[in-house]
Amino acid sequence: MEMTYSQAINAALREEMKRDDTVYILGEDVGIFGGCFGVTAGLIQEFGPERVLDTPISETAIVGSAVGAAAAGLRPVAEIMFMDFMTVCMDEFFNQAAKMRYMFGGKVKVPLTLRTVCGAGLGAAAQHSQSLEAWFTHMPGVKVVMPSTPADAKGLLVSSIRDDNPVIFIEHKMLYGVTGEVPEGEYTIPLGKADIKREGRDVTVVATSLMVHRALVAAETLAGEGIEVEVVDPRTLVPFDKETLLQSVEKTGRLVIVHEAVKNSGFGAEIAAIVAEEGFDFLDAPVKRVAAPFAPVPFSPPLEAAYVPSEEKIIEAIKSLF
């Protein structure tokens, strides 16, 4: 059935809360207000304030308490309103959630799902628009999920909640209104399985989140010029589906990586490095990255538009390889 990305996430939360009593939601304004972007709307009415908890503006306490509760047997789904705010609860996620299992010799599970929102596009400027996924891919012990479509969002969120590890589930604010076909009923999408969003023989474009959509538009345009683009959506950055990436690059010989995060030390660098290490001989051209410039997200609309990789920039990068 057709639903929005936002509705799909809401549906996943509802289904998992029904299915498993230990699942609860906490975060700023997730209850009566329905979430800053309305994603948790209606859940407090359905499940009550015992399971849908409004928190004070205390990211440290949100994540810290969720880690404690997860270690004590619950499955919290915490929401951090903007990914930018992860800076104020980094210790709880990075030093506690991510490392606890290892530090304790494998004797604890931290089944915490941390939902948060990335991306520019709303004129929200430098502290409410960042794409910081690469930080979290640098944390052994954490899984990093970045869905691009409603169907993926639902299936991946269900898997994230059921996963016994801390998962950061990164939603894109410009995708909430995007609609798409979502399978009926309960289903999961395994973490660590990339999806080929479009098949092509000439060049592999690995794109994440919102960029998947732009890559698909670029692919459509280039198809008219005889370049068949394969668009690979990793969907989860950790664990990362190397096999699909390498198979695709082996097929096409060319790789363009598109992400909204700044290029420097972005996850694109990791993807490029994987191909350099394990698929060097597949390459028929240098690896290209299309990403934001090394600058904070600007406010002014034309600057913001220029900041985020466009279809044109993707096309340009692809064409430079031929």
Binding site: T22, A61, G64, S65, V67, G68, A71, A72
Partner: peptide
């Protein structure tokens, strides 16, 4: 729930564990 290398890190963790007990 462990010793902890980060000063003050245990407070929200304990709050969370208490929440779990209350929830359960």
């Amino acid at each position: 729930l462990g010793a902890n290398g980060i000063v003050g890190a245990g407070l929200p963790l304990a709050a969370g564990a208490a929440f779990a007990n209350k929830y359960l």
